[in-house]
Design a protein around this nucleic acid. Sequence first.
DNA 1: TTCCTTATTGCAATTATTATCAATAACAAT
DNA 2: ATTGTTATTGATAATAATTGCAATAAGGAA
Lengths: 139, 139
Amino acid sequence: MSCTPRLTQLLRLRGFRMTPQRLAILQALHDGGHLSPGQVYKRVAQTGMMETTVYRTLDFLAENGILFVTNRAKGHLAYELARASHHHLVCRTCGAQVDLEREALQPLVDQLFQRTGYRLDVGHFTFSGLCPVCLPDSE
Amino acid sequence: MSCTPRLTQLLRLRGFRMTPQRLAILQALHDGGHLSPGQVYKRVAQTGMMETTVYRTLDFLAENGILFVTNRAKGHLAYELARASHHHLVCRTCGAQVDLEREALQPLVDQLFQRTGYRLDVGHFTFSGLCPVCLPDSE
DNA sequence: TTCCTTATTGCAATTATTATCAATAACAAT
DNA sequence: ATTGTTATTGATAATAATTGCAATAAGGAA
């Protein structure tokens, strides 16, 4: 992948190492978009990697800001390569998705800070809702 | 519990039934606030209920709007009795919590609707951030 | 009350996810 | 290249969560 040297460097600076397993998982996410741990495992199983390594590695890469984690239905997680900070808005009826730029949440952050003194972590949210197509159909 | 007849009626209208297991779980949540499935099980284990029933029942009650589900660390879920729609803001450092009334998200809902045409589901969010006490400590 | 229907539970088997620990392999230093 | 340090992986076990199905029981009807 084009960004391999950069990521390797990033890990080294923190005393971590780049490994074939980590590269394979990054490649899988590069090809696959956002994937659950199980889906990632399917894509890398050919390499003989243990499933437990997939879980650990996804967690590790997310800790280090290389992946974003997002909550899917009933507490299941999905991972994707970290790009510019953004969020998802997904239609609960048809599944259509749009991305939201990071700034879309800034007013909320400011408002909550004023009201409560809390500074919100704007990590990577996935919101659910109704898209413009499905909205009229709902009653 | 005071609201048992109301909930029983609610389920009945939809063709479902009130059972001792469901009551015990509701009672546990009434006493315990937000609890994970495992915590709920500990509180009802004396009744001889299977743990699998706890999972299914929590899911069922949440489906029916009687409980709120919220995402805790790394995809683990917690359940609580549904009250007036609200949200949580929890400090990632010290764990301090404040509640947000439903209306706190209205501006976000409106803004997203204008921008994208999507109507956000304002269910029950748990946001993470830094509370006023811990905020100054973070560099 | 008794009977029927079928939602619900118990039970057992599967599938996810996390933890432990010894063996391995990155990679900096020699 | 070789070596040494230690982050990382494999392998296994433990725990958490889900699923399928037969037995049970809630609650409407007789």
